[in-house]
Design a protein around this nucleic acid. Sequence first.
DNA 1: CAATAATGGACATTACAGGTCTATAATAGT
DNA 2: ACTATTATAGACCTGTAATGTCCATTATTG
Lengths: 144, 144
Amino acid sequence: MRIIQFSKSTSYALHALVRLARSEPGVNVGIKELSASLGIPESYLSKVMSKLRQDGLVRAVTGASGGYELARSPEKISFLDVIQVIEGRQHLYECFHTDAQRPSKPQCLIHQVMDGAEERLLQYLREHTIQWVLDRRKEHEPIV
Amino acid sequence: MRIIQFSKSTSYALHALVRLARSEPGVNVGIKELSASLGIPESYLSKVMSKLRQDGLVRAVTGASGGYELARSPEKISFLDVIQVIEGRQHLYECFHTDAQRPSKPQCLIHQVMDGAEERLLQYLREHTIQWVLDRRKEHEPIV
DNA sequence: CAATAATGGACATTACAGGTCTATAATAGT
DNA sequence: ACTATTATAGACCTGTAATGTCCATTATTG
Ligand code: SF4
Ligand code: SF4
């Protein structure tokens, strides 16, 4: 029974992005500082950051005094963006019937309910951005 | 990167319950008939049905001319009920920080967004029942 | 008693999340 | 040019969960 739960990778990505959004633009944050301040294994986080770069959410600079920074402004990065980069774009529900076994052309009712539920979820995640977090963040909090 | 998707077991359970809801109350439907009409492996479906019984969604009768029937009326069985029986009641988001590492008492903001998203999802699933499917079901459709 | 049907346990298979380590490439400062 | 620093990509390992099969047991009907 597959677990309906976001992966740690997604959580790591979200925390890292908030952390990056907190630093001045133009300042690179290294993986060491990132992993230390968030409490995430360094080598694993580097994998996650690499994925974020490949999908255009952050920019990376190699070499001394290199590191990461956001590729676009925090209000342009939604939770949904992050989740879809890490988890992929699979649907919440998938038919177990093949096309041949499928009763009839338009979607069956169970499918309709599940897709409706998914849309509610995605809509909420689309409406909430990294900037949303920054706006409500208290300065004294170490992370978020 | 854990897949955010309902398990096949959940899908099987939903289809089986709709199938049971279609038959007259008091008539038991056997696992053979169920699995055949839905196109689900018999021995695996029996596991799923067993779980549904343990959690009070269906009643089972062993022995000759035994089988399954709904334990309550279809409008009292929501999609959320079924999903929570099969998938468990884990939250969509879970902190990777331990209590000791946790920044401060009330929930952090990332957590708040994720919980908000979860609530939208659950609310939708709570509002849709097996009866909802029956009401919209066309008589000639073999399954739903 | 015999046929039927659900139950529970054991077991196999596959996939993947989470994590570590290393060699390589790129960059900044000396 | 050399060196220290840093991201990148790949190989690799481990545990666990999902899906599925099979069998022995138990309960029920006729
Ligand atoms: S939604 Fe329709 S096609 Fe998909 S699994 Fe259910 S009955 Fe089959
Ligand atoms: S929500 Fe707060 S406690 Fe939970 S993982 Fe994020 S920073 Fe840590």
